[in-house]
């Protein structure tokens, strides 16, 4: 069953910017990776899903609700990390999270304490003075604090150090195991490879690839067969390079990383 549905979404900003006849569905319990170069339309799509902007044609729904008309109802069960995090800068971290808790009408602090500990977040000090990474961590806590079933994450690990990126990937994997539906845009191929079931690639506002992570890789699987002098060498070669031996012949497959596949699609514009 699809939880997030984008249907023939079109929004033309002129100069080839925007999204054009974009359709995709994200199923319950799925982690969906949304890839594309800057300006391809990822954030525009996400703004439509969040109900910030009205589709000029087409529509999008979350849990069957229209993203524009029923935004507030959708938000009850949704967590969001914006691409560019800006908060009420004169508050400190703790004040901000407490404000959000009450503003959202949460009965208690939810997962706040656990997440703050997990990401080693320092809540003292004004948000204005915080580093990009620290602001990003606050954004993560704000998106997960109410334990929503649906998550829309726009480049969630930008600004995080590798250790924290890893903790974030672990969090996503846990949430996936708990059955959450997640849409994640990213430039970090490793995090997408480690978490996403399916991937949609967008270019100039159009979807150019939409498939499971595994299928995308299979599609670009290259095999080489080499013939060696004798069977013994062939056996060694097969062991060292993980190939299949048939007499003196060994077939090895080169799996491309997602990054290489991505670069194939975007060639010139990245």
């Amino acid at each position: 069953m699809s939880v997030i549905e984008v249907s023939h979404l079109t929004r033309d900003y002129g100069h080839g910017k925007g999204v054009f006849d974009l359709s995709m569905e994200i199923n319950a319990g799925e982690v969906f990776g949304f890839l594309g170069p800057n300006g391809a339309g990822k954030t525009t799509t996400i703004r439509h899903l969040m109900g910030f902007i009205r589709p000029r044609s087409g529509f999008c729904t979350i849990e069957g609700r229209d993203c524009w008309r029923q935004a507030a109802e959708i938000q009850r069960n949704l967590g969001y990390i914006p691409g560019e995090i800006t908060f009420f800068e004169e508050m400190n971290g703790a004040e901000y999270l407490r404000f959000l808790q009450r503003y959202r009408g949460m009965p208690d602090a939810g997962r706040t304490a656990e997440l703050v500990e997990r990401f080693e977040l320092t809540l003292r000090g004004k948000i204005k003075k915080m580093s990009k990474g620290m602001k990003q961590k606050i954004g993560i806590v704000a998106a997960f604090m109410h334990d929503p079933d649906i998550l829309i994450l726009d480049e969630p690990t930008s600004g995080l150090d590798p250790l924290m990126q890893n903790r974030f990937i672990e969090l996503i994997q846990e949430e996936k195991a708990r059955g959450k539906t997640i849409l994640m845009s990213s430039h970090m191929f490793e995090e997408v490879e480690r978490t996403c079931d399916r991937i949609g690639m967008i270019r100039a506002g159009k979807l150019v690839a939409l498939d499971s992570t595994e299928a995308l890789r299979q599609q670009y699987l290259k095999s080489y067969t080499v013939t060696l002098d004798d069977q013994e060498q062939a056996a060694d070669f097969a062991r060292d390079f993980g190939g299949k031996q048939e007499g003196c012949r060994v077939t090895v497959s080169a799996r491309q990383t997602l990054e290489e596949i991505f670069l194939r699609y975007y060639g010139g514009d990245v």
Binding site: Q75, R76, F87, Y103
Partner: peptide, 17 residues
């Protein structure tokens, strides 16, 4: 202009409200 309106909209609070 600053984008912090996103934080207010990303909550179960209606725009009118």
């Amino acid at each position: 202009d600053r984008g912090s309106m996103a934080a207010l909209l990303a909550a179960p609070v209606k725009r009118t409200s």
